[in-house]
Design a protein around this nucleic acid. Structure first.
Lengths: 106, 106
DNA sequence: AGCCAATACTTCGCCACTCGATATATGGTT
DNA sequence: AACCATATATCGAGTGGCGAAGTATTGGCT
């Protein structure tokens, strides 16, 4: 698996606490990133389709609220593995910059 | 500045030790990533142009070796700031996954 | 009652970027 | 002679991010 984009990473990370529907993922990612990551809707739903297609997430359940559908997604084992690997990659990459003589502390 | 792609990050990180020419950046990035990151030539020269255009790197000098040009790039202050910020972002992002109850240690 | 903000999902099209392929050239190794 | 590493440049295809537009409901404020 090659490196994951930031939106993809934050979508998976948002689902680690349990299933969420699309809009809630946007809110959760914003919250977890300290307000920095604001997933655009076009990014989210496209990424959700790709992630479901590759088995990293799955539809948990579909509710109907106010006559309109709401899809909850959950992270799969493969997805949890992938996001953990990505976190490791990022931690290692960060060390290239921070783990050098004269570098400012993290 | 929004999040940086992996190739961009590794190009900047490679230049933290001093000026390098294009091909040497590919080798250095591979070395620093433990063999994981292999910059494609098309990625490299495109990214080099963009980075120079946005002032994160600059042409250090141009040599002629064997009748053919060789351009050395160096990282600018803005570039060093940007790569440090990116390292911080990645370290923080990694903590979202690792800094949770039951998470495997980094 | 009327309006607006927030919630919620979908689709479209543009644009930026990655990457493999291709081209070109030299020097060292087998 | 063939091949590989070094070295740079460019093109085209494909992926993915993102803003916008569209649709629909609920709840609060005026």
């Amino acid at each position: 698996m090659r490196s994951m984009s930031e939106p993809t990473y934050f979508i998976l990370a948002a689902l680690l606490d349990g299933p969420l529907h699309g809009y809630a993922i946007i809110k959760r990612a914003e919250e977890q990133s300290g307000g920095r990551v604001r997933l655009a809707v076009g990014t989210l739903y496209g990424a959700l389709d790709r992630l479901a297609g590759s088995g990293l997430i799955a539809v948990d359940r579909e509710e109907t609220v106010g006559g309109r559908p709401r899809r909850y997604f959950r992270i799969t084992e493969d997805g949890a593995d992938a996001v953990t690997e990505e976190a490791q990659r990022m931690a290692r990459a960060a060390r290239i910059v921070f783990g050098r003589p004269g570098a400012a502390p993290a």
